[in-house]
């Protein structure tokens, strides 16, 4: 329901943007009609070609946004070779050694209530931080597209070359989640309907790692401080399904058929789709350090 509405929201936003562009009168860029000696001349002369034929290496610090239970803080880098000034191909990766519990996790750990009806999802409130899912690392192969470049003027004093970029590619995400429950690990006896409390508590700390394969895309702004260094500000999405809470939230009920409701198991059916937003701050180095100048 939420995902459908989110998609509807994004679709409406896209529709507004599309309407805006569609409604725009048929003008060419900025209606500037050049005649005379400048007709046919390049739009920009003596342009600093920052990327074409150069390698770019960007050490980064990253953290996730809008997290439900755990914030991920990591460090990584991207490396890109630019065929043209507006197109490159490269790789991105990060490792996340720091995980910070959100306020919701703290609240559950402090005052969450455990009863027989939710013992599988919350064997003990104090142990809840041990059952939540975390993102531990990520890597991607990606295409980098730089459609826009220009310069910023701040209060008419500070002028900085800037460009706007979009990346897209395939990503591999290292995820750690609560292990699947099954026979001997917090399984409700189908005959008696009773959960074994001890094994449930043990299952709270049982962990399982896997690699989620998904797509990734990002948008960002790069501010050039000189011809071989730049500040990199980026937002990235890593959309994939995972069980963030370690709880039994969805699945097929073995007794009552496919209910789409809690099924008495913590397993892959409890993975829910998340967009997984990430904010990245980086510092770019270009190699070779000399940039070419256009005519």
């Amino acid at each position: 329901m939420t995902m459908r509405k989110s998609i509807l929201s994004l679709s409406l936003a896209a529709a507004v943007a599309a309407l805006a562009l569609g409604y725009a009168p048929s003008v060419s860029a900025q209606e500037v009609q050049i005649t005379g000696p400048l007709a046919g001349a390049p739009a920009v002369r003596r342009l600093r070609i920052y990327r074409q034929g150069r390698f770019e290496i960007t050490p980064q610090a990253a953290f996730t946004l809008t997290d439900e239970y755990s914030r991920t803080i990591g460090f990584g880098a991207s490396a890109t070779y630019h065929f043209t000034d507006w197109l490159g191909i490269g790789a991105w990766g990060f490792f996340a050694p720091i995980h910070v519990d959100t306020g919701l996790t703290d609240q559950i750990a402090a005052i969450g209530q455990t009863a027989d009806s939710n013992r599988l999802s919350l064997p003990s409130n104090g142990g809840f931080p041990n059952q939540i899912g975390t993102i531990n690392w990520g890597a991607a192969l990606q295409v980098v597209f730089i459609p826009l470049r220009g310069k910023l003027s701040l209060f008419q004093k500070l002028f900085i070359d800037a460009d706007f970029f979009i990346t897209g590619g395939a990503a591999f995400i290292g995820v750690e989640e609560r292990g699947e429950t099954g026979p001997g690990l917090c399984r409700r006896d189908p005959m008696t309907g009773v959960l074994d409390e001890t094994s449930c508590t043990l299952s709270q700390t049982d962990r399982a790692s896997r690699v989620a394969i998904t797509g990734t895309f990002s948008v960002g702004l790069r501010l050039h401080v000189n011809e071989w260094m730049a500040l990199n500000i980026e937002w990235r999405a890593l959309p994939f399904a995972w069980n963030t809470s370690g709880a039994d939230v969805d699945g097929r009920n073995d007794l009552a058929g496919d209910s789409g409701f809690a099924d008495g198991l913590v397993d892959e059916r409890d993975r829910a789709f998340h967009f997984n937003h990430m904010f990245i701050l980086g510092w770019t180095f270009y190699l070779p350090i000399k940039a070419r100048i256009s005519e």
Binding site: A29, A43, W86, L148, K151, S153, A162
Partner: peptide, 10 residues
């Protein structure tokens, strides 16, 4: 300010 798209359109 201004920016160029593909170094062509401003």
């Amino acid at each position: 300010g201004k920016f160029a798209m593909f170094n062509e359109y401003i």
